[in-house]
Design a binder for these strands. Structure first.
Lengths: 229, 229
DNA sequence: GTACCTTTGTGCTGTAAAACATACGAAAAC
DNA sequence: GTTTTCGTATGTTTTACAGCACAAAGGTAC
């Protein structure tokens, strides 16, 4: 069982935007839950009643496309807010979210978030910045996934995972251990091709694989492959 | 020459968020310019000093990808604000914008926009909603462009153009006349394939072509093709 | 332990779409 | 008025990749 007090210490204060009073309001109405590995956090079509905050763990946000193939569109790392886009756009969720690994997530009623934004322009600015950044990334992703060839997409995904989740102490082994299917869903390819192309990367000494662990051996080369397409 | 007074009448007041005072501030610092067909409005890497408002005309926002192939990521129709994402995200432009056809565009200094948002939460909310909606569309676009086959992508683009720009009085002829290259850049395909696939759509009586004019003959079928992939 | 299932790895085949080639009419440049 | 350029159109070739099929390895249940 996670105690709210423990979360309290970790909860980011939305870019310093909240007053002590508002902060307490948020804490009072906040719920905390733990999700197991691969557990669904919300599904496509769900009503986005709460904003979520990833206290610890890792989360993938994905869309199911044609023929059941999933595409991971975003990921969240601790500590980070997520799951608010649909509510702001006045839509139901068009994506689903699931835990990459065991994750602790706090939820805050969207109604309260809206109230706070209306009283606190700095908080509004916080979300404007986050949304604008995410939109830029999404646009870049659209072009990368459509125009790059399979090797370029895989190289990009590996760098994306390093960027998003960081590395272990050696600075080269990715902090996340995704299944081959997750890699495929990030890179817009079939699992077969993710496995195959990872293998050729190993042969070319670009990466080293140990089960699901991915160690980057030649980042410069990966960047080149990613850039060239 | 366009007079500011004419623009004034058309300028949307940002969802009714502005006070009369703020409105006048905007008008005082606003610049208006006309862009010719295909003229560049801003380029990738430019510094986004101004927010833009499309008073009349049509605009495409696109990214140049691998091998000089462009991908249209968004379009703007009159009257609509655009070109603010990069400034909000504190980045230089990662996209370029050009006029589909002759367009009149007003520009407002981003500094003023930021000031107004900080004083006016409702204005912040206006942009949060717009950004959140755009992000949802961008995510959907990512999946559609990557997973659908060429016919599905083309069908989707035709419906997207109808959605975005509407039709002539007959309710079936698209209000925009894009070049085959524009269609290709919307649909993530080569110009050759855009031409070829448009031709087969004509043969199948789904659409009728008259130069660059596109008339939708069987919207239900197009929707089915778009959905199936 | 055995049985079962999931994940991973590899080879083969068919095909969608890019690349290439070529042609033609219309607009633009001279 | 001629030439050049550009947009459109269509046929052919090549290739990257998805879709199997199948085997091995690792987990989990009993």
């Amino acid at each position: 069982m996670i105690k709210k007090e423990e979360v309290l210490a970790k909860l980011p204060d939305l870019d310093g935007a909240l007053s002590q009073d508002q902060r307490e309001q948020v804490l009072a109405s906040m719920q905390v839950r733990t999700y197991r590995k691969n557990e669904l956090i919300y599904a496509e079509g769900d009503i986005p009643s709460h904003m979520l905050c990833l206290i610890s763990g890792k989360v993938k946000i994905y869309k199911d496309g044609v023929g059941g193939r999933a595409q991971i569109v975003r990921v969240a790392d601790a500590v980070e807010y997520f799951g608010y886009r649909a509510a702001f756009a006045d839509e139901n969720y068009v994506t689903a979210a699931a835990a990459f690994e065991t994750s602790v997530i706090a939820s805050i009623p969207m109604g309260l978030v809206r109230q706070l934004i209306m009283r606190n322009p700095q908080l509004g600015w916080f979300f404007i910045k986050r949304l604008a950044t995410a939109l830029g990334k999404s646009d870049a992703r659209t072009v990368n996934l459509t125009q790059k060839h399979i090797r370029g997409r895989l190289a990009e995904s590996i760098l994306f995972l390093k960027e998003s989740y960081g590395t272990e102490d050696d600075g080269r082994t990715l902090a996340i251990c995704p299944s081959r299917e997750d890699v495929a869903n990030l890179s817009n390819m079939t699992t077969s091709n993710a496995i195959r192309t990872l293998s050729t990367f190993v042969q070319e000494k670009l990466i080293f694989l140990d089960g699901r662990k991915i160690k980057i051996l030649d980042e410069a080369a990966l960047q080149k492959i990613s850039k060239m397409g």
